[in-house]
Write a protein that binds this DNA or RNA. Structure first.
Length: 762
DNA sequence: GTGGATGAG
DNA sequence: CATTCTCATCCAC
């Protein structure tokens, strides 16, 4: 199955006699506005195109949403021009190996196209300036800042790659329209129009919403420019597909809105299969194999014809997209689910060479993991074997013990991870015989926070089970239909422990049994408890207790600065904005910028990072104190200035004369100077809706930022459930067949990945 | 959970 | 066509 732009979730739910009602009463809340009419009213009695008559090709949301898509202009090139402004008026290419992956607009004017070979690029433009872009650190960090900035406008931000973001600004638009005379409102930027069609304006109200959306998009772009120095393009439309497509109409540094009456003529301007996001190489080939050469031929194709080759869901998705119909929601994806690093090369043919490569990759990944704050539970090694004409990749993965990250310093961590990597390599190739690799990728996945959600939950849910010397953890009971029991004796049973053979004794041990159970989607989630006992081992420096304490501290810190802030759902209060913004910006400078301009991977000696260790001191055995500390620190650290040490470190390592981070830090610092109000929180706690299993009295005494986070979490979960219901009910409208009931059973919506579960899930 | 296929920028 | 260096989702196993 291919990746689809539009996720099919219509098969959720099955027969339900009340579904007709559901549509009516659920819609307003799902749309976030009681004032917006039900979608059936919003669907235009549009120019009836015969082949659109299939009901599955019609939008259920009509024009109710307002979506903004923002695309950074030639992103890598922009980042490099910020680092080195003298590049601005020169033709610039960003190089990865022997390829120019992107170019600035000066180079484009000279005919250098994206993804061209260096050789060809230099023939077209001999004075092309090439900057290595193999190290993505700067791009990744700048990309994160962009998403964070946009999250301050609206909570629903979805990343697509490093340089694109979708925003659902429906609510923002609505609140602004209530306090604006929309008659005088004129859109900002371009609007798509066609001479080929005379369209009568849609009367559902979308025109005002989209117009307001264009103003919001302009503010967003202006903010990206003033705070980060980045120019961008925006598209404004009623769905993600249209917003993305229309935004490309005026490049660079401009924006376009698509008013709904132009949708059909706009879509007809796209003729090539690959112009539709979601139809990739493979689907394109498959379609052509069926005799469907272009979109004009695809659009009138019956679903049933495509379903034979692609399956019903994908067939419907493809057709809908081809018609400009896309009801998929904007979904905040949170922190990345995997961190990977890779390098390609002419040849690696010996074990020592492979080890050296992998060492470099792992070093970088350890740094990224440390700054992320989460720890990975699995590691994957991917290689590309040299086969002329083939770029096939193969991978092997294995679980790794989280203890590695908690107990060991980075030097021994590297050592052990390398051993694991070598083990995986030997599963892929016989390292005793000659081999020829052209690429190695190492990927850490299954990233989990050091402090579990369960630990936090148990802190304030009733009954609070906190036996002395024990930490209570909970597992969320969302399982895949299997029922079983698993007894875990100690982390020695982890697969990594077996790989390594000689792990030191585990410092944790699961006393109770974990058991998995089936949980119906509609019933309250069951929570199974198990208990982990922390053994007291070494009384001195590197004991398990000390390392546990360290992990708590690190987690608290990361909550304030790292990936966590990135994904944190921010309220719209200005004080909240400035707090997180300034904090992140400043702390962001604490990380050493990689030397991208030189094109060298970091070669400087690698130091063991022990500075994060907790201060020495006496330690109370009662781990509940640690939890309290963790919660407190998440508040205190949030307001903390970056330490002198980290700032000095960053400036002394910074070799470029104009680093992005520095200029960003200054801009962001200004912002914080203006606004230093504390985080606001709803005064009347009684009004806040909290889940039934939460003890309000315990909730009330939590630090305000923790409360906020939990509230955001619950709201998000609620929204998610509403989406589920919506999708479930909307599937009612689809033609029924045997598939819909069977896939309703097997297809679960992805578990809610909201702030808290991301932060604390174990 | 694992590993490949596919697709996004 | 992929080429680079990521990241994500889906699915058979």
């Amino acid at each position: 199955m291919e990746r689809r732009w539009e996720e099919e979730q219509n098969d959720i739910g099955g027969e339900d006699p009340e579904e007709e009602d559901d549509v009516d009463w659920r819609m307003p809340s799902a749309l976030g506005s009681p004032s917006i009419k039900a979608p059936s009213m919003l669907i235009q009695p549009s120019s009836s195109i015969a082949h659109r008559s299939e009901t599955c090709l019609q939008s259920k949301l009509g024009h109710s949403r307002t979506i903004v898509h923002i695309d950074l202009d030639c992103f890598y090139a922009q980042v490099e021009m910020l680092r080195n402004p003298t590049l601005r008026d020169k033709p610039l290419g960003i190089q990865q190996k022997n390829i120019v992956v992107t170019t600035n607009y000066v180079a484009r004017a000279r005919g250098v196209s994206k993804l061209s070979y260096i050789k060809e690029a230099l023939i077209k433009c001999p004075d092309l300036v090439l900057v290595s872009g193999e190290d993505l650190t700067n791009y990744r960090e700048t990309s994160t800042k962009v998403t964070e900035l946009l999250e301050q406008f609206c909570p629903l931000v979805e990343r697509l790659g490093f340089d694109e973001n979708f925003m659902d600004v429906t609510k923002l638009v609505e609140s602004r329209l209530t306090s604006t005379d929309s008659k005088k409102l004129v859109h900002i930027g371009h609007s798509y129009e066609s001479d080929a069609q005379i369209a009568t304006q849609c009367q559902c109200g979308c025109r005002d919403r989209l117009t307001m959306g264009s103003h919001i998009a302009k503010e967003m772009r202006d903010t990206l420019k003033s705070k980060l120095g980045l120019t961008s393009c925006a598209g404004v439309a009623t769905n993600k597909l249209l917003a993305k497509l229309v935004g490309a109409h005026h490049k660079p540094n401009d924006q376009t809105v698509l008013f709904s009456e132009w949708t059909d003529s706009f879509m007809q301007t796209f003729t090539k299969l690959r112009q539709i996001p979601g139809i990739g190489h493979s689907s394109g080939k498959k379609l052509k194999g069926m005799g469907i050469q272009n979109l004009e031929e695809l659009r009138p194709t019956p679903v049933s014809t495509l379903a034979d080759q692609f399956g019903k869901q994908q067939a419907e998705t493809m057709l809908r997209l081809a018609h400009g119909v896309d009801d998929t929601p904007v979904v905040s994806k949170g922190p990345p689910q995997s961190l990977s690093d890779e390098d390609s090369f002419k040849k690696v043919g010996t074990l020592p060479a492979a080890k050296e490569m992998m060492t470099g990759l792992i070093k970088n990944l350890i740094k990224r993991l440390r700054s992320d704050g989460r720890i990975p539970y699995t590691m994957r090694l991917t290689v590309r074997k040299y086969v002329p004409g083939s770029w096939h990749r193969e991978s092997r993965q294995t679980g790794i013990s989280p203890n590695l990250f908690q107990k060991h310093d980075d030097a021994s961590l590297l050592e052990q991870l390398l051993e694991v990597a070598v083990g995986l390599l030997q599963k892929l190739i016989d390292t005793n015989r000659p081999f020829h690799l052209t690429l190695i990728n190492i990927c850490f996945t299954n990233l989990r926070s050091k402090v579990t959600k369960g630990a936090i939950d148990s802190f304030f849910s009733k009954p609070a089970v906190k036996p002395k010397g024990l930490v209570t953890l909970q597992s969320q009971g969302m399982c895949d239909g299997k029922t079983g029991e698993m007894e875990v004796h100690s982390s020695k049973d982890d697969s990594i422990a077996n790989e390594l053979g000689d792990l030191p004794a585990a410092n944790t041990e699961v006393v109770d049994k974990m058991h998995f159970g089936t949980v119906s989607g509609h019933k309250p989630r069951e929570e199974e408890r198990y208990v982990i006992k922390h053994k007291q081992k070494q009384p001195s420096s590197s004991g398990s207790v000390a390392s546990f304490r360290t992990s708590v501290n690190v987690t608290g810190k990361v909550e304030a600065e790292g990936s966590k802030s990135f994904f944190k759902k921010l309220g719209s209060s200005p004080s909240n904005k400035s707090k997180s913004l300034s904090c992140r910006g400043e702390l962001g400078t604490a990380r050493k910028p990689e030397s991208v301009a030189t094109g060298l991977r970091e070669q400087s000696s690698w130091t063991v990072d022990t500075a994060r260790d907790a201060p020495e001191g006496e330690f109370d055995e009662d781990n509940s104190l640690l939890l309290e500390e963790a919660i407190r620190s998440s508040q205190n650290v949030a307001l903390k200035q970056p330490s002198k040490r980290t700032l000095e470190e960053s400036s002394s390592h910074d070799t470029t004369e104009c680093s992005v981070d520095d200029s960003l830090a200054k801009r962001l610092k200004n912002d914080s100077d203006h606004e230093t109000k504390p985080t606001t929180i709803k005064q009347n706690m009684e009004e806040i809706e909290i889940p039934p299993d939460i003890d309000r009295s315990v909730f009330n005494v939590l630090p305000s930022n923790m409360k906020e986070e939990l509230i955001a979490d619950w709201e998000r979960e609620k929204r998610r459930r509403e989406d589920e219901c919506l999708l479930a009910s909307s599937s009612q409208n689809l033609p029924k067949n045997k598939k819909s009931s069977s896939s309703a059973k097997k297809k679960q919506l992805p578990a809610v990945r909201n702030t808290i579960t991301k932060y604390f899930k174990h």
